[in-house]
Structures are given as structure tokens and as C-alpha cells.
Nucleic acid binder design. Sequence first.
DNA 1: TTGTACGCGTTATCAT
DNA 2: ATGATAACGCGTACAA
Lengths: 305, 305
Amino acid sequence: MSEATRRKVLAAAQALNYVPNSNARALAVANSSIIGISVPNLFNDVFADILLGMRRTFEHAGYSTLVQTTDYDPAREERLTEQLLAWRPAAVILTGIDQTPTLCARLQADRVPTLQVWDVTDTPIGICVGLDHYQAGADLGLYVANLGYKRAAFVGAPQGTDPRADRRFAGLVTAFETVHRTTVQRIAVEQGNSYAMGQSGINALQKTDRPDVVFFLNDNMAFGGMMAVERMGLSVPQDIGIVGFNDLDLTSVLPRTMTTMATPRRQMGLTGARNLLGLIHGVRPEPVTCLPCKLVPGQTTRQIG
Amino acid sequence: MSEATRRKVLAAAQALNYVPNSNARALAVANSSIIGISVPNLFNDVFADILLGMRRTFEHAGYSTLVQTTDYDPAREERLTEQLLAWRPAAVILTGIDQTPTLCARLQADRVPTLQVWDVTDTPIGICVGLDHYQAGADLGLYVANLGYKRAAFVGAPQGTDPRADRRFAGLVTAFETVHRTTVQRIAVEQGNSYAMGQSGINALQKTDRPDVVFFLNDNMAFGGMMAVERMGLSVPQDIGIVGFNDLDLTSVLPRTMTTMATPRRQMGLTGARNLLGLIHGVRPEPVTCLPCKLVPGQTTRQIG
DNA sequence: TTGTACGCGTTATCAT
DNA sequence: ATGATAACGCGTACAA
């Protein structure tokens, strides 16, 4: 069309306050430019980080993101995702690989491009980008066990609540079993904010048979736990070692560096988004991408040697 | 209709894997069950908290929420919200009261139920629920000034970046002007994570003319700043007082309680959501709701007397 | 280049 | 109670 016409149309549209109706568009082309995302919650720097990487990519590609939070409830995840599918989204992103069979079947049947993020499996619904939590737990455990710590504890959500936590714990168990033939006690803490959970995890320790090192679900909990330990008059890392997970922002300002496992969260979001866009546009991307973690030795555990 | 028929239809729907198409529905009824939300970012516990309160309410009422992040960029906010309006959302929620005139006009013209949250104004676009940041800054400043601190500094985003920060700063200035006839220096820190920002804020302090108390934009920054202060060999609160804002989770586990201002974030989300639902359904709710803050005296500033 | 007709899946209305 | 039909606003395809 001519440039003059083009301008006249645009001017008229402006004057009439015209906004194209995305619903009608989605209906006409039989799918929308929405990408549905399901995460456990928004309070975790982990998910905020992953989302940041993804959203930018999608926004640039012209998609809107519809975020839903599951609170680690599979039934809730199923319900919300079902609801999300009603919008005929261009793609769906789920956290983890532990969705209900019903949901998996539905996703497969609808042939919606699906990305599972933050965890990996050989049999993803569509594609997955994440890390091997078992391996991460094992690597971290091995490092710490070789430092001479023998009686370990793991503080986190109750068994069965967070599948990634369970896998990491399994990795820890293997490591301590291998190195010292000792077990790792698991301490479940009630819901609450991360800091408080770490704190109550420490407070729940038995006076007798106190562990010499405590692993936490994440750095925030580890910090809360460390504060509790020091309040009890114990010293870190002599009396007790403290180990976090994720290498979150908090650790960058602590007087003592924290022993933790750095996870490639931003990268995960970026890679996941890129691969998913590929899947949407028909190119067949890598079905499963396992990103490496990086051990961060710190001063909250003894030094090597 | 008869119960038998009803069951047969439901069974058939199940068998065919039928999912109602929300786009078509939205088109037919001329508005969708989406509520669009615009927040600066997801890394802030403040917004996560507000969102938690709101989302639950909306979910219960059958709405989905479409969250967009603006990164404190008004132009970006305008663009994204314009895009959001294309979905004919049932309502729109914006953070703060500093939208571009263009955006305000469009929202008014479209007659979309609009909620502005986290800040208040006498002239909201639709309704607003928030707190008086100037007053909060003034109250906090007054308390601290009366503790005997005279040379204050404020560490936060650069002037003009975060309107709420600017208003709180203005409140602080008034307080110190009133009590001691002193000024408050403002220290702008580059973008980064909150902890690091707090740290670099302290590092940016002049050796000469060092303030005797530092106010931070939020508790996380205050914590980062406090770590930096102690690393410099200064003691808190003798050499220097530390003041946060928001009363975030982190403060609950610190060995020293932090002087801060508790903000009713969850409540804000709940009240905002409830009022907005009212507005959607035609009842005329309170146009402007200003929620009270609560001063939290702590051990990072001198004690009274 | 411009115009016109049809279909997308749902709701709403009207007739049966 | 049920069946038929017209919108809703946009994309697309075909005709002028």
C-alpha cells in the first residue's frame, strides 16, 4: 500500500483510540501470543532469576507471559495449567519434572510446546533445561565430606514437598555413605520465610548427637541457620559447618564467604526461552539440556587439608 | 436441564478433551477474565508480597493475572500496558502513581477499572491503595533525628528513578531540617542486587564529613551497608546508625534488630484486590485508601534517652 | 491497491 | 428444554 494511505490509516486509528483486540486475533489464528508460566512461588530468588532471563527473550519476540504460582501443590499446578490452556497459549513453561500424569497427558495431547525448567529428565513432555539436582547434591556432599565432616544434617522442606530438595538430599546421602559410611539426618521445617526456616531448623537440632555440618535448601535458609548457630554460642566453621545452595545475592556481602553451589539460573532462563522459541517455530531444539553447577568453597566450612 | 443430560454432556466433553476457549469467550462477552498487573520487578520482596495478597483473591474470584515488569521505566510501562489493554482485561493494576499522561488518558478513556497500589494520590486514575511515602520518611526521620543523630545520608536509587524513594527522601529532609536544621545527603548507587547496592553506598561515603546515620531504600540494602560498615572497622550503632525500610524477612534473624519502618504489604494487596473487585462489579469502593506504617525501633540505632 | 465474504468458538437471543 | 442464528473483531483468501 502507499505510504500516504498508511499514514492516514494510522492517524485515524490514533484518533479513534483504536487498540487491536488480541482475543479476536488469537481466535482467528487459532492460537495466542501468550506464554504461560508456572512456578512454585515468587518469593524465591531462584524463580525470579529464571523468569528474568526468560521474560526478556519472550518480550522481545512479541509474547506476553502469564505467570501462575503453584505453591508446590501438584493438584494446584494441574488445575491452573488446565485453566491456562484455555487461552490456547503459544507455549507452556513448567517448573520441575514432577507434574501429575493427567497434566502430562493433556499437554502431550494438545501438542502445546512445553518447556520444563530447573530440573532435567530423559523423558520431558516437550523439552527441558535444568540441572541435575542429584548430582549437585552429590558433588557438594563429596566436597564437604572430604573436608572431614562426618555427621551431616539437611534442613529443608519436608520429604515429598519439593522434589528437587529430595533429589539433592539423595545426592548428599550417597556422598556421605561413600566417604564416611555415615548417614545424613533430615530436618523438616514448617513453612515460613526462608530465614526463619533456617533458624528453626537449627533450633530443632538435638542437643545430643549434634551434626558437625548442616546443609540447607538454599543460601537464605543457611544464613538464618548460621545466625541461630552463633546465637547458641557455637562457632562456624569450627563447631559446625554451614552449607547453602544457589549462591544467591545475599552471600556476596557476608563477612565470611559461604560454602554453596552456584546454579546457572539466569542462563537457564535464557537457554530455555531460546529453545522454546525454536520449538514454537518448528525447529527441533535439543530436547534435554543439563547445565553445569559450580562449587563455591567458602569460609563457613573448614578449609581443605 | 436434566441431571442425566448434564452428565452425558460432561462425559462427552471429557472424552473429546474439550477445553473451552477463553479467547472466544472474551471476544463474545467483550471483555476477558484477565487482570493485568504491572510491577517494577520481581526481585523485590515488596512486590512479591503485594502480589501474593492480590493473586489469591483474584484466583478465588476466577481471574487470571498477567504480570508485567517495567524496571522503573515509565516508557516501558506505557508500552507494556498498552499491549495489555489489547487483551481487554477486566482490570489493570499499576505500581505507584507516576504513570505517563498518555497512559493515564488511555486508561481513563477506555474506562478500564484501574488500581494504583503502593502509593497514594488524591487523584487516582481509578482507585488507589497504598501508603504515604513522604509521611513514612518523615516519621522515620523524626524518630532517628530525635535519637541525636544529626548528619544523615540516604542511600538508594538515583533521584528520579524511583518516585517512592524520592518522596521518602523528601520526608527525611523535612525531619532533619525541623529537628537539627541539617541537610540529608543523598547517595545514588548503580543498579545491582540490593545487598551490593547497600555495600557500595557505604563505600561511596566521603572519609571526611562522614554521616552519623545512614538511611537505606530497603532492609536488604541496609544489611549490605551494615556489613560494609563493619568491614571498615566502624561499629553500629555507636559510630554510625543504620536504618532500613519495609521490615523484610531478613531482619527477623539478625543478631541485632534493625531500625526500620514496617509496611503493610500483604494487607495492601488484599485490600487493593478486594476494592478492585468491587469496582469491577459496579459498586463504588473507597477511591483512596492510605494504610498506616509501623515504626520498628531497633538496635542498629542508638537507644532513646 | 482496495473491497468483500467467510470462519475462528463462544455467548446471547429468539423461535420452536 | 432444545435448536438455530447472529454477533464479537480479526485474519485470510479471493475478487475486483
